[in-house]
Amino acid sequence: MPEGRRRRRRGSTLTTRDRLTLVGMVAVPTFLVVAFILVPTILSILLSFTSWNGIGGLDRIQYVGLDNYVNLFTKYRPFWPALSHNILWLAFFLFVATPLGLFFAVLLDKGIRGTRIYQSVLYMPVVLSLAIVGFIWTLQYSPDQGFLNNLFGTTSRDEHFIDWLGDKDINLWAVLVAASWRHVGYVMVLYLAGLKAVDPSLREAAQLDGANERQTFLRVVFPVLRPINIVVLVITVIESLRAFDIAYVINRGKNGLELLSILVTNNLIGEASLVGFGSAIAVVLLVISLGPIVYYLVRSVRAEAE
């Protein structure tokens, strides 16, 4: 918030023309966001209480109360696997990919020669579309033609066969490695920016006090990174909930790769859609997403207030 607000109400100095200009500047973007995002979101929530195949007039929509939710929680086989996969995805990102990104950032922050090149390489996957990432990793994982199985001698003709994408106990992990390939670079760059902002004198002071590198990082640097940690946390949670493209490209999110976003898509598009049911899954996804979103906003507002 501009400081001006606390001193006096700046608004009072605006002419009518200025006010109209401001209204115009706000109205167009707001209209777009409301019409294209907010209204559809609300309509999706309403649709989740109905049964509709998405075809024909709106009069074909039937109100069914909580039926969709009851089916979802009690009968729909892919739901609980999908939810647990999303949670596993989140856990993997939180405890493996994100710390790895932080680790790389710390290494690159040492300012050794060639930092830029290492950074470019590690960040490169982030600019690729997930559809392409999915294809690139299929080339590594494919059962008989893929790189890994040919390297390890584990194709389906060999004695020990590893079915990276087909075995439902393995394929989620294989996909998580591919997804982390992108996530690590993303997180690394965020932390790198944060680390650059750490006042060098803080470190020097700690080192003068006899702290070793690890202690300096844990006691001095990491606490200063707190704002970045929160951003990274929110991004990690949101990315895990939004996870879609890679699994969708690999096998349409079946057979061990079920994810909430894919269940929504599979129910909403396709030859016959179950719009009400798909919307109910979307609402579950929405409710879960609101957690981190609200947390983030509350924090931002507090930061504003300070």
Partner: peptide, 12 residues
Amino acid sequence: LNLLPPQVIITP
């Protein structure tokens, strides 16, 4: 709204 998964709004 920028953090929403896009699937949430697609049908409407």
